[in-house]
């Protein structure tokens, strides 16, 4: 009974808090640009509106066009449920759950790409091609980051491996994971969520043809993914385990907010990279994680 309650509570946290993040990012961007900007809760309004709207389906699309976003959304929420929440621990933990998490993200990516290809639009094909291609390098970086956490703690399970040590390794890992966060969530400098030129988009162009509840599922899933990466980044870098429970919870929330504001600031100050430069940046993220791994290795050997 307790388990069910814990799962429901956790699910509620992820479901309800995730759409806050894009709102904060937009507010930060507006603030830097000296505008008032949309309300922080804008995504909630959008989701509620989309959920009630009808669906326009391309004549070419199969039922997979609607199933794809549903599967992706379940996969992202499943990944979120595996992620421990600071002092709250996790609902379910087993050895190797971190690999399941990575592959659930891959499942979500497959389904989004599948749904994009359904329409036969060249734009969406382009977006899907970019998404799956850049994921190759991002995946290498994530696995390296996970390996470095694993080396640090000698564990392959998320609950125990997210107890990092401070030092040079943490800085490198933070930089690497932050870059991966930007890439995986299609933020500047990899992709510009606010651009109006479809030729330069990745994620947004993949969902051009979606509407109504499936689009709501996609947008909500994207916000869950952003929150997931922020939580992962904070827990991989800040030693929350050493703090008392309330302090750790506070630190987690503050950290996630800081990451979100950071994303907003990056988006305000940087321009989107040319696509041919993206692999270079992702390689840099991979190398940062790799050096974090080597530092962790050396630190443990002493």
């Amino acid at each position: 009974m307790n388990l069910i309650l814990a799962v429901i509570l956790r699910l509620a946290v992820w479901l309800l808090l995730a759409p806050l993040l894009p709102g904060i990012i937009n507010k930060v961007k507006a603030w830097v640009a000296g505008r008032r900007g949309p309300p922080v809760l804008q995504l909630y309004y959008d989701l509620a509106k989309l959920w009630r709207k009808g669906v326009v389906l391309s004549t070419l699309a199969s039922p997979g066009f609607i199933a794809g976003p549903a599967v992706a959304w379940v996969a992202l929420l499943g990944a979120a449920m595996l992620m421990p929440l600071g002092p709250g621990g996790t609902a379910l933990s087993f050895r190797g759950d971190v690999l399941l998490l990575i592959y659930l993200l891959a499942l979500a990516r497959f389904c989004t790409a599948w749904a994009a290809m359904e329409t036969g639009s060249a734009f969406e094909g382009m977006g899907a091609a970019r998404e799956v291609s850049y994921a190759v390098l991002a995946e290498a970086a994530i696995v390296t980051a996970v390996l470095s956490l694993s080396v640090q703690t000698g564990s392959v399970s998320l609950v125990t491996m997210l107890s990092p040590s401070a030092g040079a390794g943490a800085v490198l890992l933070a930089a690497g994971l932050f870059t991966v966060l930007l890439a995986e969530n299609c933020r500047v400098p990899f992709d510009d969520p606010n651009t109006h030129l479809e030729l330069t988009m990745i994620h947004e162009v993949m969902v051009l043809d979606h509407s109504g509840p499936p689009l709501a599922a996609i947008l909500h899933g994207a916000s869950v993914k952003l929150l997931l990466f922020a939580v992962l980044l904070i827990q991989a870098v800040l030693p929350l385990g050493a703090l008392s429970a309330p302090a750790a919870a506070g630190a987690l929330v503050a950290g996630v907010l800081a990451v979100t504001v950071g994303v907003g600031l990056v988006e305000s100050w940087l321009a989107r990279l040319a696509f041919r430069r993206v692999p270079l940046l992702l390689t840099t993220a991979f190398l940062l994680c790799l050096f974090a791994l080597l530092v962790a290795w050396k630190g443990g050997a002493k």
Partner: peptide
Amino acid sequence: SYVPSLLLGA
């Protein structure tokens, strides 16, 4: 080019 030289350097 840059990615190979970066990988070589690393």
